[in-house]
Amino acid sequence: MTRRLMTFVLLGTLMLLSPGRLFAAEGQGITEPFDNGWIDWSNGTVWADGIHAPKERGDRPTSPEEREHYVNRAVREAKGNLSTILRKLTIHAETTGGDVMGSNRDILAQVDLMFLSTPITGKRFLTDGSVEVSVSFPLRGAFSQLILPEEIRQIDPIKPLFPPRETKGVEPRTPYTGLIVDARGIDAKPGLAPRVVTKSGEEVYGPTIISREYAVQRGVVTYERTLTRAAQGLFADENPLVVTGIGTPALARTDIIISREDAARIRSDAAHTTFLSQCRVVIVLDGASPKEKTAP
């Protein structure tokens, strides 16, 4: 299957599975607010709003044709706001969606085609004749296939050559099934392709370890606000290993620095190559939700 065909297959699947709008409230997830929209990093979705206010109409009722015209204008504005957010989206460090799309006209053209299928997830007619609409756009799937760094390639998880050695009288430890990085209090920020590194810059989790298939389907990481939500997350599964972030690189606040001891704990686990390559990683951040909204 060609890369372009895979893109549109994934897009179609995601649009069919796209849920109704999830209005963020305090404590629900990691969100990043923008003018007229926000990124829900916990659910891997971008939301954008658009509004069209007609010129003075007096007391004349709005005709069906005018109402449809107002809706179309509001949708165009919402998609324009969505485009702006995607261009400001942080991929890694200082690299944004706009940087990637601006340097590759083919990627830009395919993202523009995706916009044609962007669903309207909310519509509201106000008493003054104005129309407000909301649209949503999934970051996982087709968009990630296009926008993720090329270093993230399709790889098979490395299997250990020998089973873990059993010690007499010692209960064998259950292998870890995921990684939770507690990065609260270190001023880290969310991104589409973060890394976990040591102080010396040695990569513990990043493009050389990740399988692109899982990165596209699941996201490189999942972001949550609390350890409880992280432990309950799908990607962490039943027995996650928890480590603590101790800082971020000066020029890459999307990356999380962990201690050499925690890096050794990750690598000493026989299953780490599997759960890391499958992107079973949750990062817990400090995060403020956008103002609470009510569904239209």
Rank of each mutant, 00 (worst) to 15 (best):
N239R: 07
N239E: 02
L241A: 10
L241C: 05
L241Y: 02
V242P: 00
V242C: 02
V242L: 12
V243F: 02
V243E: 12
V243L: 10
T244G: 04
G245A: 05
G245L: 07
I246R: 11
I246T: 11
I246P: 03
I246G: 01
G247C: 09
G247P: 00
T248M: 00
P249I: 10
P249S: 13
A250M: 12
A250S: 15
A250G: 09
A250H: 11
A250I: 14
L251V: 15
L251C: 14
L251M: 14
L251F: 14
L251E: 13
L251K: 14
L251P: 09
A252R: 15
A252I: 06
R253M: 05
R253A: 14
T254S: 08
T254H: 01
T254L: 01
D255M: 04
D255I: 03
I257M: 13
I257F: 03
I257C: 06
I257P: 01
I258H: 09
I258G: 02
S259A: 01
S259C: 04
R260A: 15
R260F: 05
R260W: 06
E261R: 07
E261P: 07
D262P: 11
A263H: 02
A263G: 07
A263Y: 01
A263K: 00
A263I: 00
A264Y: 04
A264M: 03
R265W: 00
I266G: 08
I266F: 02
R267P: 03
S268A: 10
S268E: 06
S268W: 05
D269W: 00
A270M: 10
A271T: 10
A271E: 13
H272I: 05
T273A: 09
T273C: 03
T273Y: 05
T274K: 10
T274C: 06
T274A: 09
T274I: 12
T274Q: 12
F275M: 07
F275E: 07
F275W: 14
L276R: 07
S277G: 01
S277N: 02
S277H: 05
Q278L: 13
Q278F: 08
Q278S: 13
Q278K: 14
C279T: 13
C279G: 13
R280K: 15
R280W: 09
R280P: 01
R280I: 09
R280V: 06
V281I: 15
V282H: 04
V282A: 04
V282D: 12
V282T: 12
I283S: 08
I283Y: 02
V284E: 10
V284H: 01
L285A: 03
L285Y: 09
D286I: 01
D286Y: 01
G287W: 02
G287R: 05
G287M: 04
S289G: 09
S289T: 15
S289W: 04
P290R: 10
P290M: 11
P290D: 08
P290Q: 00
P290W: 09
P290E: 05
P290N: 04
K291Y: 11
K291M: 11
E292M: 06
E292Y: 07
E292I: 02
K293H: 10
T294M: 10
T294D: 12
T294I: 15
T294F: 14
A295K: 13
P296G: 08
